[in-house]
Amino acid sequence: MTYQIVMPRVMEIGGGASGSLASVLERLGLSRPLIVTDAFMNTRGPVPGLVTQLREAGITAGVFADTVPDPTTASIDAGVEALRQDRYDCVIGVGGGSPLDSAKAIAYLGTFGGTMRDYKAPRQNDGPALPVIAVPTTAGTGSEVTRFTVITDSESGEKMLCGGTAFCPTAALVDFELTLSMPFRLTADTGLDTLTHCIEAYVSRRRNPISDAHAIAGMRAVADNLRTACFEPDNREAREAMMRAATQGGMAFSNASVALVHGMSRPLGAFFHVPHGLSNAMLLPRITEYSAEGEALPRYADCARAMAVTAPDADDETAVAALLDALRALNRDLQVPTPADYGIDRAEYEGVLETMAEQALASGSPGNNPRVPDVPTLKQLYMDCYE
């Protein structure tokens, strides 16, 4: 049996890694970058310093700073228009998952044309697009190393998963120092996103030994460091460990897959504007409970052992029970609301259950889960998570 592993050609990891941007461009033979970011990163984030670094190296960069949270087809179209205004030879994504996903989509659509809905799953997009250099400023999405981007259709509201090797960045500069100013809620939500990536990659039907190794390492790091990163935001050791875990989680799920939690999370985020990491966290304990039966039990037990929430010699059922308790405790400690607590109206929630369930299944992610639900089961699981 063989399996395909895809990752960036160049990776710089560690404190200060973003300072090597100019030299990485030189190594790749690139000289006309468009920086894709958001307004905050462009004014109070690292973008001004990166522009200065490039200028001092003789590189003039354009800046598109109009990305939006949960990027939309409209925002991507605006970025493509900016890309076409000059002869840019690469795209530099700077920010959290939304700017990085935007950079990937802009580089791809700027090369191949059409609309993003032309490229949504299950289509695989493997043709070469403009090179993307990813500079993440949050520790969670792992987008800097993945072959996926998620874009919301401005017309239908559907969160579209687009995948293929063309979406994997050419280079990733993983600098934990850029995360030191992350507030509590963002630190918690992105960290729980990382944990979800690791667990789902490990239990996925498409897992392999390489993705397993990254997933286990990432789970261990999150269990050891997420609370510290949240409650001691200046703790550099915890911040560095969480940034490394995010990248490991990204490499794990990019080379295996995500599963049911992510499949259900995208519609929840699209309909009710719940940040991606938070919507994953809302679902993770209950969906883990549903999924961890039968043949999947030993895999989830391994997750409990990796996170050190059970004794190494505990039997699988005991270990999984401890895992579920640990996930619920983590949500309590990090103040993760239920959809009801978040303020989502029950009647409105119930009114879109069918559509959310159908969109979740259509994304393909639930098909990678150890247990694959049908639409009625998905609707019940959404309701189980509501309160």
Score class of each variant (00 low, 15 high):
Q4D: 08
V10N: 14
S18L: 04
S20E: 10
L25I: 04
L28S: 06
R44W: 11
R55D: 15
T67V: 13
V68C: 10
D77K: 14
L83N: 02
V94I: 08
L100A: 02
K104H: 03
K104F: 02
T111F: 07
R117E: 05
P131L: 12
V132E: 00
P136H: 09
P136I: 09
S143T: 13
R147N: 15
T149Y: 09
G157W: 11
A171W: 03
M182I: 13
A188C: 04
D189K: 05
L195K: 08
T196W: 02
I199N: 03
E200W: 11
R206Q: 08
R207I: 01
D212K: 15
A223Q: 02
A229L: 07
R236L: 06
E240T: 06
A241F: 10
G250T: 00
G250A: 00
A252Y: 07
A256E: 02
N280M: 10
A296N: 07
Y300Q: 10
D313K: 11
L323T: 07
L323N: 04
L324G: 11
R332V: 12
L334Q: 04
T338W: 10
A340Q: 13
L353C: 03
S365Y: 06
N368S: 13
V372L: 04
V372C: 03
K379S: 06
Y386F: 15
